Amino acid sequence: MTARAMTKLDHLEKMIRRKNGASIAEMMKATGWQSHSVRGALAGALKKRGLAIASEKIDGVRRYRADEQT
């Protein structure tokens, strides 16, 4: 059995599950997407995966984190 390659959405999910989450700039760099595409993925596809996405400003940079929805 072959493991499938990680998609860009998989990478975004992994990034926002980190303790400190990820900024839009970090997610743009990882995917090659523009900021509106990253925000769309957060609001659409990743929420459909069952993630509750929270954001907060840390040292002047907005960071996004994910938790499982209950």
Rank of each mutant, 00 (worst) to 15 (best):
K8F: 03
W33Q: 00
G21K: 00
A5G: 09
M28Q: 10
I24S: 08
G21P: 01
I16Y: 01
A52D: 11
S23N: 04
K48N: 05
A3C: 05
E26K: 05
M15S: 07
M1P: 07
K14T: 13
G50P: 10
N20C: 06
R39L: 15
A54P: 00
R39S: 06
R62S: 14
R49C: 07
H36R: 15
K48V: 04
A22M: 11
G21Q: 01
A52N: 10
R62N: 12
R65A: 03
T2G: 04
A41N: 09
K19H: 09
R49Y: 05
R18D: 10
L46S: 03
V61Q: 07
G32D: 06
K47P: 00
S23F: 02
H11N: 02
T31C: 04
R39F: 03
K48D: 13
S35K: 14
E13Q: 13
A43Q: 07
A3Y: 08
R17F: 02
S37L: 13
R62E: 13
K57I: 15
M15C: 06
S23C: 04
T31V: 00
Y64G: 05
K14N: 08
E26P: 04
R49G: 05
I16L: 03
G40H: 07
K47Y: 02
K29V: 04
Q34M: 05
D10H: 11
T70M: 09
E26N: 08
M27W: 00
W33A: 01
G60R: 02
E68K: 15
K57M: 11
S55R: 15
R63M: 05
R65D: 00
K14Q: 14
K8Q: 12
M6V: 09
S37Q: 15
A41M: 10
